[in-house]
Amino acid sequence: MADPVKRRYDTSRRQEQARENRRRILAAASGLFREKGYAGTAMPEVAKAAGVAVQTVYKAFASKAVLLKAVFDVTVAGDDEDIPIAGRDFIAAIQAEPDAARKIEMYLEHLAGSAPAVWPVQLLARDAAAADPGAAEVWAQMRQEMLTAMTYFSADLMATGQIKPGLTAEDVRDVLWTYHAPEQYELLCLERGWSPERYGKFLRDAIVAAILA
Rank of each mutant, 00 (worst) to 15 (best):
residue 3 D to F: 09
residue 7 R to W: 09
residue 9 Y to A: 12
residue 9 Y to M: 13
residue 9 Y to T: 11
residue 12 S to Q: 11
residue 12 S to L: 10
residue 14 R to N: 14
residue 15 Q to H: 13
residue 15 Q to P: 02
residue 17 Q to T: 12
residue 18 A to T: 14
residue 21 N to K: 08
residue 23 R to N: 12
residue 30 S to F: 07
residue 35 E to D: 12
residue 40 G to C: 05
residue 41 T to S: 00
residue 52 V to E: 05
residue 53 A to Y: 11
residue 53 A to R: 13
residue 60 A to V: 05
residue 61 F to M: 01
residue 61 F to W: 06
residue 62 A to Y: 07
residue 64 K to P: 07
residue 65 A to Y: 04
residue 66 V to W: 09
residue 67 L to T: 03
residue 67 L to H: 00
residue 76 V to F: 08
residue 78 G to E: 09
residue 79 D to F: 03
residue 87 G to L: 08
residue 87 G to D: 15
residue 87 G to F: 07
residue 88 R to T: 08
residue 91 I to K: 00
residue 92 A to C: 07
residue 97 E to L: 06
residue 102 R to D: 12
residue 115 A to P: 04
residue 118 V to E: 07
residue 119 W to Q: 12
residue 120 P to M: 05
residue 123 L to N: 08
residue 123 L to C: 04
residue 123 L to W: 06
residue 124 L to G: 00
residue 124 L to K: 05
residue 124 L to D: 07
residue 125 A to P: 02
residue 125 A to H: 05
residue 130 A to K: 15
residue 149 A to M: 14
residue 154 S to G: 10
residue 156 D to Q: 10
residue 157 L to P: 04
residue 158 M to F: 09
residue 161 G to N: 11
residue 161 G to V: 08
residue 161 G to Q: 10
residue 165 P to A: 14
residue 165 P to G: 12
residue 168 T to C: 11
residue 170 E to L: 13
residue 171 D to V: 02
residue 171 D to Q: 01
residue 171 D to F: 03
residue 177 W to D: 15
residue 183 E to Y: 09
residue 190 L to F: 04
residue 196 P to F: 01
residue 197 E to L: 04
residue 203 L to Y: 00
residue 204 R to Y: 12
residue 206 A to N: 08
residue 206 A to W: 05
residue 206 A to S: 13
residue 207 I to Y: 01
residue 208 V to R: 02
residue 209 A to G: 02
residue 210 A to V: 08
residue 212 L to A: 02
residue 212 L to T: 07
